[in-house]
Each structure stands twice: as C-alpha cells, then as structure tokens.
Write a protein that binds this DNA or RNA. Structure first.
Length: 644
RNA sequence: GCCGAUGUAGCUCAGGGGUAGAGCGUUUCCUUGGUAAGGAAGAGGUCAUGGGUUCAAUUCCCAUCAUUGGCUCCA
C-alpha cells in the first residue's frame, strides 16, 4: 500500500499501482470525467499512469494550467492524426501546447496546406475525438525508435531522437497515430469536444532561419462547445477593440505609404490626445523632481560607438547619414540616453547635485524588420517618455521607489488595475555575462526587490532576464479583456556611466561613478496609446478624450442657444462641439454615441426656455435636465476626481 | 528578412475573361424634427504597381510594393 496526499492535506491509502484516475473515480465520477492529467510530486504525468510510491497528488482539470496544456498537447497529436489521414506524406516536427492553444510544425513536402482545408480537418478531428481513442504510452529503445521513424522517413523525429538518451524515449499512440513524445497526455481523445484550427504560419525547424521552413498549424480545443463559443466571442471583442480599427474610426492616426512603413501620422484628434497624455506626465514628473531636456533627432555616430549601441545594433539600424562636404557621419537617434549622458557631462557634478533627473519625450528611430511592424505598437519612429536618473549607489532604492510611485499613479489614473511587476535579475549560472561589480549588483538587486515589496507590488522574479548592464523592473498590465501587455520599464545601468566616464565629486572629495536609471512609464507614446485604445475600447477617460461634450440642437432654430452653451463650456476648458447638421436628433445622438463622445447635450425649445441642457451619457442614455452651470460643475468634479 | 493570406470608391465590402456594384460617408435640394439611421438627386474608381497569357485582363499567371497572421529580431 502507498500513501497519497491530496492538496487539502488528506491522505489516502491505496494499492501500489493505483492511478490518479482511479483515485479521482473513488472521489466522484463527475470529478473523474474532468481529470485531464495529474501532478504527482510536482511532476505532471498521465492521469492513467500507475503511481508506485507515496506521493502528493493534485488532479488537474481544465481549470489548471497543467490540465489545459496537457489537453492542448494531446490535441496537437489529434490534429496530427487528422492531417496524416489526408496527407499521408506529411512529416511531423514538433507540436507543443502554447498560451492559447497548440501548434504542430509540419513538413508537407510538395503539397501546400490552405486554411480552406481547416473545416475538413476539424471535422476529422472531432470524428476521431468521438472514438475516445486512448493515448497509449510506450517506452521504446532508441534503436526501435530510430527504426520506426526511419521507416516513416521522418528526419525531424530522427533528429530529435538523436538528442535523447536511450531508456528515456517514449511513444504515445492514439488511434492510428504514433508520435515520439515525452507526454503527458489526457486519458483519451473523448475529452476534446470542440476544435478550432486558427491559422497557418511559416516557422523554421528549430527556430533557425538557416533551416527548412515548415508549415505551422495553430489550433485550439476545448472540453465544452460553450468554451469555444466564449473564446471566439473574446477574439471578436479583441477585433472590435483593435487600435488600428478604432484609430481609423476615431480619426486618431494614419499611415501613408508615401511617408513610409511604420511611420505614423498623428491626426488632430490623436495629436490632441497624445499631447494631453504628455502634459499629464510632464506635470507628474515636475512634481517628482524631473527636469526637462531636449536633444536633437540625430547624433554623431561616434556617440553611439561610445555608448556601445553602434557595435551591437549598428548593422541593423537605419544607415548613417553624412554631411555633404565634410563627410561627418550621423545616426538617426535610436536612443536618448547617450545625449542625456552628454548633458550630465556638460559640467562637473557634485554629490550635492544628485540625483539628477532628465526627462524628455524623445523621438527615436529604429529599423524594425518589415514583417514585424504592427499598427502603433511596433513602428520605426516613436517617442519615448524617456528619463534618466543619475544617482549615487545609495540613492538607488529611493529613486526606484519614486519611479514606482509615478507608475502607480499613472496606472490608477488610466484605470489599469490589474498588473504585476517583473523583477529581472542576473542569471546565477553565468555571472560573467554582466558588467559592473558584484557588490553593486547585489545591492541593486536587493534594492529593487525590497522597494517592490515595500510598495506592495505583486511581483514575479525572473533570473537571467536582467540586461547585461543592470537589473530591471518591468510592469505587465492586463487590459480590460484579459490580455497581457508589457508597459513601463525601470532599468538600472552600470554600463553607460562607465562608457561615458560619468563622474561626480563625493563628500570625500574623490571622484565617483554615478548609477543611471532608465525609465519610461508609458514605454512609448505610440505603443501606449495603442494599448490604451484597446484597453478602453476607444472610450477614453473623460479628462483625456479629445471631444468631451457634443451639443446637439434639435433644429436649426436652436443653433444660437447651442452656441451660447458652447461658450460656457469652452470658458470652463471643456472640449465641446456643436453638431449643426440638418439631421434629426436621433441621428445626431447615434453618431455621437458611435464617436464615443462621453456626454451629449440636447438643446431645443424646452432647454432654451428654461436655460437648461438635457444631458445624455455615452452608453447610458438620458440623464435628465441640468442648468449649464450645474452640468459644468459636475464635469469638472468628475475630472478632478479622476486626476486626484 | 522568411512563410502564408489580402489589396476593387474616403470607409466597410460584394463581384467577376467582354474596361464595375452596394451600404456608409461626401455634395446639392427637400425636410426643422425630442433621445441610436427622414427623403431625393449627383459626384466619386486606369479594380495597388509593372510585366506575361489572351482577340480581349480589373478578373488567370509572374514579379514588385503595401497591408495582414505567424516565424526570427527588439537598445
């Protein structure tokens, strides 16, 4: 007999060789129907595998990441079986689960798979799923494994087997499909109730562009049809929120082929929105002791040789530009920090000057590969809400704390409520990868971890994710529909102060090297605006939105009164416009709603006679009548509370 | 950069070997109305660009460019 400890601490005594599924069955049949895999002593295995020793056991269902990924991994095999049925010559490379589904990289040889075939494949998968074929695990010797895939002519599997130890090789078979696989898998294909193939993509064998490009088929499966429906609804919602679509509809920005790829043009409303965000951050930064600086869009190539960026990124940058006669070489600036270092160096610095905080909305240009450009989130020219803090080693913790405060203020004001901070530290295995003394790193890493803790941030620590020049603190937000985005970043830098030989005179009258902190709460204005659009589905917070109020006269007779109302609003710095088109009120309302204008003021005979306005809130409908003054007060109050 | 898809009016899209259509928008006219689309008429397109096949190409083929989904990359 062996002892099985369940997550609630209860212990069950069962015969050796009992499987997790048996145990689930003994608890309830309903539970057993949902068990996809089992976590035994921290390791995820097949739910049907016998357990032979005392163990802690967690039954994994669709609600566990481990259960989900097992299901998707098994689904990849199921898809492979369906593909093999129609394309017997297909060779299978790897087919893992991913964050939202699974894929399989497949070599179709001469044939081409089109997404028009998806329906056929999905139907086949469902047909095979209904057969409830078991996923049968089999340990095979290396020579047998090689023999099997040599017969199948699948060089990819052979290459994978080549890297495996004899004795550790397992095959899984369901129905007519056998795959080299470590597992684990769900008990049988019947757990898969809903199937959707998502897209096709090219992917290199082993991710190396020198290797052959395979066809990657993405799919997703669910244990209930409804889960699939919900998922498709979510995707639809994401499409509706796409910043490229909304940016066009709301006249925020535009891309022109004549200007160039990845070079956004900000339209008046977008520029207005962006300027307001910048002002918001400038005000916050002013309070936090930042000083504005302005630097040119180009800089001498030698500046980037000093910084090290030329050596690392020069070849992948926009080509340098030259002066016509002297042949001096300049770069479009890809980073603001070298310029800011030069500002620091513009005169001798004392410890009494520190910390120095230089802030600039600095526009930078980077050559991004054409396939990588995407709306406003990935562009070739963008403006960072950049700042560099030059401080002494013992000021790091304080300064990072202040940056965190700033970031938290921004998140709160813009209604990003769900976020975590990722602390990126050195890879303990490879200490030689990093520049700067071990003592300083130890102190800096400790400072980041402590201050994140003190600020009550939800954090995850990632070892090996630090930059070579210093540890980082990155903020990851979840938007309104649950998608993750990386936003603000705080990075310590020991490298640039070294390369630029930055110094300050300490209290001891010796020269010391300052530490530099790079930070950008938004990241870039382009990317941030894109994320904000998608987060709020184009319904910007009242304080930020370009048009706060639209006045809708019932008919031409009330245009004068509407203009009077407009004047009152404008005098209170409320951004408003009058819709004077000869349209009916229903249409004006409809369009104001679709334009996502937060408030509509309807003015007609009644309002004119009583010196009132009938207010309507976007998405909520009629609010009733107000005097113009009361309405203004209410708007002012609402905005004030938002920016508090 | 690589693989796939797409490119038709300002926008969203339909169509299809015999030089084009809808809705919205826009213009003009009628209508002056009460909480999510009033009516009529008109303007607007070398069907992305360049080649090829064909009696004939916007349609089929190839290339280029751009957009797009991935891959690789990301200071």
């Amino acid at each position: 007999m062996i002892q099985i400890t369940l997550p609630d601490g209860s212990v069950r005594e069962v015969a050796q060789g009992t499987s997790a599924m048996d145990i689930a069955m003994s608890i309830s049949e309903g539970l057993a129907r949902n068990v996809l895999a089992a976590e035994v002593n921290g390791q995820v295995i097949d739910a049907v595998r016998p357990i032979n020793e005392d163990a802690s056991l967690k039954l994994l269902t669709w609600n566990d990441d481990g259960g989900k990924s097992t299901m998707w991994h098994s689904s990849a095999h199921l898809m492979a079986e369906a593909i093999q049925h129609f394309y017997p010559k297909a060779k299978f490379a790897i087919g893992p689960p991913v964050e939202d589904g699974f894929y399989y990289d497949i070599d179709f040889g001469e044939e081409i798979l089109s997404d028009k075939e998806f329906k056929k494949l999905e139907d086949k998968m469902l047909e095979l799923a209904r057969e409830k074929n078991e996923y049968v695990r089999e340990e095979v010797s290396k020579s047998d494994a090689i023999k099997y895939f040599t017969e199948r002519g699948d060089e990819y599997k052979l290459e994978l087997i080549d890297g495996l130890e004899d004795g550790s090789i397992t095959f899984y078979t369901q129905g007519s499909f056998t795959d080299l696989c470590r597992g684990p898998h769900i008990p049988n294909t019947g757990f898969i109730k809903a199937v959707k193939l998502m897209k096709l993509a090219g992917a290199y064998w082993r991710g190396d562009e020198k290797n052959k490009q395979l066809t990657r088929v993405y799919g997703v499966t669910f244990p209930k049809q409804k889960d699939l429906t919900d998922y498709l609804t979510l995707l639809e919602e994401a499409r509706k929120r796409d910043h490229r679509k909304l940016g066009k509809e709301l006249d925020l920005f535009h891309f022109s082929q004549n200007v160039g790829q990845g070079l956004p043009l900000w339209l008046p409303k977008g520029a207005d929105l962006r300027a307001r965000l910048e002002t918001f951050l400038k005000n916050a930064q002013k309070k936090a002791g930042y000083e504005p600086v302005i630097t040119p869009h180009i800089g001498s190539k030698s500046l980037y040789e000093t910084s090290g960026h030329w050596a690392k990124y020069g070849e992948d940058s926009f080509r340098p530009i030259e002066t016509p006669h002297e042949g001096e070489v300049y770069m479009l600036k890809p980073m603001n920090c070298p310029h800011h270092c030069e500002i620091f160096k513009s005169r001798p610095r004392s410890y009494k000057d520190l910390p120095i905080r230089y802030a600039e909305f600095g526009t930078v240009y980077r050559y991004e590969q054409s396939g990588e450009l995407h709306g406003l989130t990935r562009v070739r020219g963008f403006t960072q809400d950049d700042a560099h803090i030059f401080c002494a080693q013992d000021q790091i913790k304080d300064e990072i704390g202040k940056v965190i405060d700033l970031v938290l203020y921004i998140f709160k004001t813009l209604d990003f409520q769900d976020f975590i901070a990722q602390v990126s530290l050195r890879d303990p295995e490879n200490p030689e990868k990093y520049i700067g003394s071990k003592e300083n790193w130890d102190k800096a890493e400790k400072a980041i971890a402590e201050v994140a803790e003190e600020k009550g941030l939800k954090t995850v620590v990632e070892y090996g994710e630090a930059a070579f020049y210093g540890p980082k603190l990155d903020f990851m937000v979840r938007d309104a529909i649950g998608r993750k985005w990386q936003l603000g970043t705080v990075q310590l830098d020991y490298n640039l102060p070294e390369r630029f030989e930055l110094e300050y005179v300490g209290a001891d009258n010796d020269r010391h090297r300052p530490v530099m902190i790079h930070r950008a709460p938004f990241g870039s204005m382009e990317r941030f605006v894109a994320i904000l659009i998608e987060h709020c589905a184009g319904k910007f917070p009242l304080w930020l939105t370009p048009e706060q109020v639209r006045i809708l006269p019932i008919s031409e007779k009330y245009h004068d009164y509407a203009q009077d109302v407009l004047k009152v609003l404008n005098n209170s710095d409320i951004r408003a416009a009058v819709d004077e088109r000869a349209e009916k009120i229903g249409k004006k309302i409809r369009e104001a709603e679709l334009d996502k204008v937060p408030y509509m003021l309807i003015v007609g005979e009644e309002e004119q006679n009583s010196s009132q306005v009938s207010a309507r809130k976007q998405g909520h409908g009629d609010l009733g009548a107000f005097s113009v003054e009361d309405f203004v007060k209410q708007i002012e109050k609402e905005i004030k509370e938002m920016l508090a």
